[in-house]
């Protein structure tokens, strides 16, 4: 990996805008996005489908020409005569790539290895993604997870400083997903920087040092997963199903200890709380006192999904309709 001034970020995006035109219809994919990815971090773009994540990554990769904005990758801009040198320092895993069906894993990697002057190590890449045993299998014999790991291996071949992973685990089974997460962690441990997009909140929470929550082509919030969750004001949810809540008022709920927010429905109470054990004990006592029967109880940690819901009023699984 090439040494660089510590202050210089891996990616610096300012005022990025991209509009897709088809006939008379215009779709604003990215609408004034600002972002800085520091060296050595795993940075996640988290947002629903259509939020502009892929477009942003493709602009960073030099595949898509932005309509406006300044994008600097490892201190350089695309189209200034240094593109090949820049590409040699990037590893890219697109959302979808069909490698040649009849080529084996090793042959595919050997092809990509030839593109890098430093002499990329095919065996090392095979080991990194755990495909050594599949090295002589053809593309058509690989499972979805193995294909995806092969795609990541082609991205790692040139020993990049910066790795782009566009929804690397979408459609994978839990085991394949975990294997890929390990690859990402290993790359980071060796000092690499990663920009990944995902619409999986658990993936962002598990993998990312920092996350940008993106919606409708803009960044709504940036921070570490813990910071973003803390910004909710409370980190736990208490969800109680009851017989009938008419005997309870919203003022009663607000008066409970450690409650940050509350929601009162005819047969359900949802509290956002800072501390589960104090709030829950007080709530159960209140319900007993008012004669309300408890039929179900669940508590859970707040997630990035809750942050997204708080910021947009929608869930991550809902499509963005620009």
């Amino acid at each position: 990996m090439t040494a660089a001034p510590a202050a210089e970020p891996a990616i610096a995006i300012a005022g990025l805008r991209k509009v897709y035109r088809r006939g008379r219809k215009e779709t604003v994919a990215v609408d004034g996005l600002d972002l800085v990815v520091r060296r050595g971090e795993v940075f996640g773009l988290l947002g629903p489908n259509g939020a502009g994540k892929t477009t942003t990554v493709e602009v960073c990769e030099g595949l898509t020409q932005p309509d406006a904005g300044d994008v600097r990758i490892l201190g350089r801009r695309w189209g200034q005569g240094e593109d090949d040198a820049l590409r040699a320092r990037l590893g890219v895993c697109l959302q979808e790539t069909h490698f040649q069906e009849k080529a084996t894993v090793r042959e595919t990697l050997a092809l990509f290895a030839s593109f890098y002057d430093g002499g990329a190590d095919v065996d090392a890449a095979l080991d990194l993604v755990g495909l050594r045993e599949k090295a002589d299998d053809r593309q058509s014999q690989l499972s979805g997870g193995q294909r995806q790991r092969l795609a990541v291996a082609t991205a790692l071949l040139g020993r990049p400083d910066l790795l782009f992973l566009d929804e690397p685990t979408t459609g994978l089974d839990p085991l394949s997903r975990r294997q890929l997460w390990e690859v990402v962690r290993g790359f980071r441990a060796r000092g690499g920087t990663i920009l990944l997009t995902t619409h999986g909140m658990d993936e962002a929470q598990q993998l990312c040092d920092r996350v940008a929550i993106v919606d409708r082509g803009r960044v709504l919030a940036i921070g570490s997963p813990a910071e973003l969750i803390r910004s909710l004001g409370a980190e736990h949810f208490v969800d109680v199903e009851c017989t009938d809540t008419s005997a309870v008022g919203t003022a009663d709920l607000a008066a409970l200890p450690d409650v940050a927010a509350h929601e009162l429905r005819p047969a359900r109470i949802v509290l956002t709380v800072r501390s589960v054990h104090t709030a829950l004990a007080a709530l159960l006592a209140l319900l007993r006192e008012r004669g309300v029967g408890v039929q179900g109880l669940a508590t859970r940690h707040a997630t990035l999904e809750d942050v997204f819901v708080r910021l947009t009023g929608r869930t991550l699984r809902e499509e963005t309709t620009p």
Partner: peptide, 14 residues
């Protein structure tokens, strides 16, 4: 169509 060309385009291959 299989996006392989696109993948190749983001490597240092000319």
């Amino acid at each position: 169509v299989g996006k392989l060309l696109r993948r190749l385009a983001v490597t240092p291959m000319r």
